[in-house]
């Protein structure tokens, strides 16, 4: 695990139509690192992930993946360059089986799909036991597990996670974070956007605080956790 930067945004400006949501955001993720992005509602956290993934056009600034410029690439090209994105909601195919969901996660992969699926199932044994079942019947937590598993099918360099704990019971939140931690320990870098700031910061090594579409603070997660402003604004201290 070296300290090479695998994902970087440089002064990224984007938004929906004329409305700018990000007004210049710079974040970076090193190889194998887990980085948290926290901030109040409307700070542009989810927009940042969409822009990185090419779902929103960059008005200015850019996105570098493994040193190569991927700004303006379609999602189809971005996934082939080693990026996976798990949206916050509607992140599974409800009428497909669990196994088919994973196959779709590996759509651009030509070979080794079966081997990779076995690896992913080892991380999510509870999904492996039900792989032939339709996804529509799964509980919220299990759906979130499946969404993570789908995102891992291409063995991405960086996994973008948009509020994986949203809408889950406290017990399930713990289970999801534990699973994300294991994914990271296996070598996948993670960029984690979270409303659950305290949990996200205790899980990650570094973090960014976004406010109004700009970088507000960044640094070691432990120092952010102890930061007075962060504590006052997001941790309810």
């Amino acid at each position: 695990m070296n300290g090479r930067v695998v994902l970087e945004t440089r002064e990224l400006v984007t938004g929906y139509g004329e409305v700018e949501v990000l007004r210049g955001v710079s974040v970076s993720v090193r190889n194998g690192e887990m980085v948290a992005v926290i901030g109040p509602n409307g700070a542009g956290k989810s927009t940042l992930l969409k822009a990185i993934f090419g779902l929103l056009p960059a008005h200015s600034g850019g996105v570098l993946l493994n040193g190569a410029d991927v700004t303006g690439m379609s999602p189809h090209e971005v996934v082939q360059n080693g990026l996976s994105y798990v949206p916050q909601v509607e992140n599974v195919f409800p009428s497909l089986t669990i196994q088919e969901n994973l196959e779709m996660g590996a759509f651009v992969r030509r070979n080794g799909v079966r081997e990779r699926m076995d690896e992913v199932f080892r991380l999510f044994p509870d999904l492996a036991a039900r792989k032939g079942e339709n996804t529509g019947k799964l509980s919220g937590g299990q759906r979130q597990m499946l969404a993570l598993a789908r995102g891992l099918m291409l063995d991405p360099t960086v996994l973008l996670l948009d509020e994986p704990s949203a809408g889950l019971s406290p017990k399930m939140v713990g289970a999801i974070f534990e699973r994300i931690n294991r994914i990271n320990e296996a070598g996948t870098a993670v960029l984690l956007v979270e409303q659950n700031a305290r949990e996200a910061l205790s899980l990650c090594r570094r973090g960014y605080v976004l406010v109004m579409g700009r970088n507000r603070l960044e640094g070691e997660a432990s120092s952010l956790l102890n930061n007075e402003e962060v504590g006052r604004l997001y941790l309810g201290a």
């Binding site: 779902l55 999602p75 189809h76 949206p87 195919f93 497909l96 779709m104 996660g105 759509f107």
Partner: peptide
């Protein structure tokens, strides 16, 4: 078939199909 499954996936959730890299 893979393409057939991709058709059903797209009918289910077109945005996620795009995100998954389905053409």
């Amino acid at each position: 078939t893979k393409l057939g499954k991709a058709m059903r996936a797209m009918a289910d959730n077109p945005e996620l199909a795009r995100i998954s890299g389905i053409k």
